[in-house]
Design a protein around this nucleic acid. Structure first.
Length: 274
DNA sequence: AATATTTTCAACCGCGGACCA
DNA sequence: ATGGTCCGCGGTTGAAAATAT
C-alpha cells in the first residue's frame, strides 16, 4: 500500500489558524456536516489540507469540547487507563467526553509523566523506579537546573510513596498484558480507582497541590478546578465552554457566532454524523 | 528591565488500517 | 488478491507563554 501525500501542498497554508479560517470551517461543518475531509477545504473556501481541517475541528472547534484544565480525578483516570491501554490516546480519550486525544497526550507528556516520576513510578511501565535510577534520571533529564533542595524534596516524596506505589503498579502492569482491553467494566474501573485512591491517600497531596497551584495561578487563564470540581467532573457535558475558555479568539468569534447557537446545532450535527 | 531557559500545547508528519473498485 | 485512496492515530516539532536569573 503506497502512501500518497494527503493533499497537494502547493499553495496551501500552514501554521496557526486565523479567526477567519476558524469561522469558515465552523460555518461549513455546521451547515453541511462532515462527509469527506478531503473536500472540506475546497468547499469551505480554505487553503488548508483536509487533514489540517479535521485536526482543527476535532481539537479546537468542536462545540462539545470540554475546555479548561483536567481535574485531578480525570488525571487519575488517565493514569489508570494508560496502565491498561498504553499510549492509545484515542482509546483513552474516548473515556473522557469532550476531551481530545491530543489534549490528553499533551497533558500526559507535560504533567502526568512528571507527577509519576515524582512518585517513583515509571510512566512507561507503571512500575516503581529504583531510587538510584531516579536520581540519575533526574540529573540526566534536567542537568544543573534542579536545585539540591528540589532533589531532596523529590526523594522525600518518593521514599514516602514507594511502598504504596509498588503495590498499585504491580497490579496494573499485569493487567496491561491483556491485548483486548477495549472497554473497562464498571467493576474493574471501580477497583482500579479504589487502588489509586489508596495510593493518593498516602501521598503528600499538599506538595502536589501546591505545585499545581503555583503553575496555574500566575497565568491569565481560568483558575484551576477546585477539589470539589475535581471530585465532581461534569463528564459528558459541554456546559463549561464559555466560562472556561478565556482564549482570546473565542472572544472574537463570539461576536461572529453565538455559542448558544452552537449548542443548539450541536445535537443536529452529531446526529448527522451518526 | 532584559535576557535566558523551561514549559506548554497547537499543529504537522508519516505510518498503518479500512474501505472500495 | 491487488492496488489506490482516505482517515485516524501516535510521535514529534516549534512558536508562544511562563518562569527563572
Amino acid at each position: 500500500m503506497g502512501r500518497q501525500p494527503c493533499c497537494d501542498k502547493v499553495g496551501l497554508k500552514r501554521g496557526p489558524w486565523t479567526i477567519e479560517e476558524d469561522h469558515k470551517l465552523m460555518n461549513f461543518i455546521l451547515n453541511n456536516g462532515i462527509h469527506c475531509w478531503r473536500m472540506v477545504p475546497k468547499l469551505a473556501g480554505l487553503l488548508r489540507c483536509g487533514k489540517s481541517c479535521r485536526l482543527r475541528w476535532i481539537n479546537y472547534l468542536r462545540p462539545d469540547l470540554k475546555r479548561g484544565l483536567l481535574s485531578e480525578m480525570e488525571e487519575n483516570q488517565i493514569i489508570q487507563l494508560h496502565a491498561r491501554l498504553g499510549n492509545r490516546w484515542s482509546k483513552i480519550a474516548s473515556h473522557f467526553p469532550g476531551r481530545t486525544d491530543n489534549e490528553i497526550k499533551n497533558h500526559w507528556n507535560t504533567r502526568i509523566k512528571k507527577r509519576l516520576k515524582l512518585l517513583g513510578v515509571d510512566p512507561v511501565t507503571h512500575k516503581p523506579i529504583e531510587q538510584k535510577e531516579k536520581v540519575e534520571e533526574k540529573t540526566e533529564t534536567t542537568p544543573e537546573t534542579n536545585s539540591s533542595k528540589e532533589q531532596e524534596e523529590n526523594l522525600e516524596v518518593i521514599s514516602r510513596t514507594d511502598n504504596h506505589a509498588q503495590s498499585e503498579v504491580l497490579k496494573t502492569s499485569d493487567q496491561k498484558q491483556n491485548e483486548e482491553v477495549e472497554i473497562i467494566s464498571t467493576d474493574e474501573t471501580t477497583d482500579l480507582l479504589h487502588n489509586y485512591e489508596m495510593l493518593c491517600g498516602s501521598l503528600d497531596v499538599g506538595l502536589w497541590m501546591n505545585q499545581e497551584t503555583n503553575t496555574t495561578s500566575n497565568s491569565n487563564s481560568s483558575p484551576s478546578l477546585s477539589l470539589e470540581d475535581s471530585l465532581n467532573p461534569s463528564m459528558g457535558e459541554s456546559s463549561s465552554i464559555q466560562e472556561d475558555s478565556p482564549q482570546q479568539w473565542v472572544d472574537s468569534v463570539d461576536s461572529l457566532l453565538s455559542w448558544d447557537c452552537f449548542n443548539q446545532l450541536e445535537e443536529e450535527l452529531f446526529f448527522l454524523n451518526d
